[in-house]
Amino acid sequence: GADWIHFDVMDNHYVPNLTIGPMVAAALKPHCIKPDGTKVPLDVHLMVQPVDALATAFADAGADLISFHPDASTHVDRTLQLIRSKGCAAGLVFNPATPLDVLEWVIDKVDLVLIMSVNPGFGGQSFIDSALRKTERARRLIDASGRDIRLEVDGGIKADNIRRVADAG
């Protein structure tokens, strides 16, 4: 019954944790469908370094969207082009202390922006309030671009802060 599958991939290099790989995504992909036959997007968030080889592997495994952290890619523009050339939507992920500057230079190649509201790598962390300002700024950049770019916020979202996050954009 899910409307969206968000798949976190960690490599024990970019973040200090190790999770699942392309084979699990490929095994999951046939099940990304609702009982009425509607396809459910498989959204792969890469917390890995380097990015390109795993982005390609996840595209081949059936990912619909692939996002990565700009500081994990040697050439952000090239990585975005690679992901889109594989038929996937491409996204950028910004850690709590990472500025949005790079987004202004590649927004024409971005389909998704993910603002991390915790430091990536471990679940159960508390929401970092400065993510609200970053979300507001990302929303302004997206709106100014005139493009239909999905904006996500990830980490520490709970009943007591979800309204503030939604209001931020």
Rank of each mutant, 00 (worst) to 15 (best):
A2M: 12
W4V: 04
F7T: 09
D8C: 14
V9W: 00
V9C: 06
V15H: 02
V15S: 00
V15M: 07
T19Y: 01
T19W: 06
T19F: 08
I20Q: 14
G21C: 03
P22I: 07
M23Y: 03
V24A: 15
A25V: 08
A26P: 02
K29A: 07
C32K: 00
K34E: 12
D36S: 10
K39R: 13
K39P: 09
V40G: 06
L42W: 08
V44S: 02
V44P: 00
V44F: 11
H45C: 06
H45K: 02
L46R: 11
M47E: 04
V48F: 10
Q49H: 14
A53W: 08
L54I: 10
T56D: 06
A57T: 08
F58I: 03
F58N: 10
A59Q: 08
D60T: 15
A63G: 14
I66H: 07
S67D: 13
S67C: 10
F68Q: 01
H69Y: 00
P70S: 11
S73D: 11
T74W: 03
T74R: 09
V76W: 13
V76H: 13
V76T: 15
V76A: 05
V76R: 14
D77R: 15
T79L: 06
L80E: 05
L82I: 07
I83R: 10
R84H: 05
S85D: 12
K86A: 12
A89E: 15
G91S: 05
V93G: 08
N95S: 15
P96T: 14
A97H: 15
P99G: 06
P99C: 05
L100H: 11
L100W: 10
L100A: 03
D101N: 13
E104I: 13
W105R: 14
V110P: 05
D111G: 09
L112H: 14
V113L: 02
L114Y: 12
S117E: 01
V118S: 11
N119Q: 14
N119R: 08
P120H: 10
P120I: 02
G121F: 08
G124V: 11
Q125R: 01
F127I: 01
R133I: 12
R133C: 10
T135Y: 03
T135H: 00
E136I: 12
E136K: 13
R137P: 00
R139I: 01
L141H: 07
D143N: 09
D143Y: 08
A144M: 00
D148V: 00
L151G: 06
D154S: 03
G155C: 07
G156C: 02
I157N: 04
K158H: 12
K158Y: 06
A159I: 08
D160Q: 11
N161F: 02
I162T: 10
V165I: 10
A166R: 13
D167Q: 12
A168H: 06
G169Q: 03
G169L: 05
